[in-house]
């Protein structure tokens, strides 16, 4: 049982349901979450797949060894809407993925200069989700063709 889970249970018992009265209000300006105790075989794509359930991710940073490129077991993720961080922290804390219980918390992320290319690559990949009018039409045509 995680400390955050204990705090959440106490708040529920006392009847606090609004995010403005909850402990999450201290982090209302932090859209990043810290994800710890990850299985070392999980990649950025896996993290995005799992955490997209609670909102649209806008940025992801998986900490990797500089020499070998292996995962170090922790990551940072940013949501488009800050309220998604509340959902992720409350619902995925202690959930087991790959045999390991996740540890999730709000955080204030400070980027590193050595990872500049990494940030650009991640942003380029995630910007593909942005829908413009032309893209929407293409998608509609594709969907129409599929059943035919």
């Amino acid at each position: 049982m995680n400390k955050i889970q204990q705090i959440n249970d106490k708040e529920l018992q006392s009847g606090i349901l609004s995010p403005h009265q909850s402990w999450h209000n201290e982090y209302k300006d932090n859209a990043y979450i810290y994800i710890g105790n990850l299985n070392r075989e999980l990649t950025e794509g896996d993290i995005l797949t799992v955490f997209s359930e609670y909102g649209v991710p806008v940025d992801v940073i998986l900490s990797r060894d500089e020499n070998t490129g292996e995962s170090q077991g922790f990551a940072y993720l940013k949501y488009e809407d800050q309220r998604s961080t509340i959902l992720a922290v409350d619902n995925l804390n202690g959930f087991k993925i790959g045999g390991r219980a996740l540890k999730i918390d709000h955080t204030f992320y400070r980027p590193k200069r050595s990872l500049q290319k990494y940030y650009e690559a991640v942003k380029e990949e995630l910007d593909r989700d942005i829908v413009s009018k032309n893209n929407a039409e293409k998608l509609i045509l594709a969907k129409k063709d599929q059943p035919n």
């Binding site: 529920l12 349901l17 799992v50 359930e53 809407d81 619902n91 959930f95």
Partner: peptide, 29 residues
Amino acid sequence: PENRFAIMPGSRWDGVHRSNGFEEKWFAK
């Protein structure tokens, strides 16, 4: 699945619901 803020999942989600059960407790409360 429903959540308290009515936020829809992103397109990269694989459709598998993963949760420790807190949202259900919230709605029950």
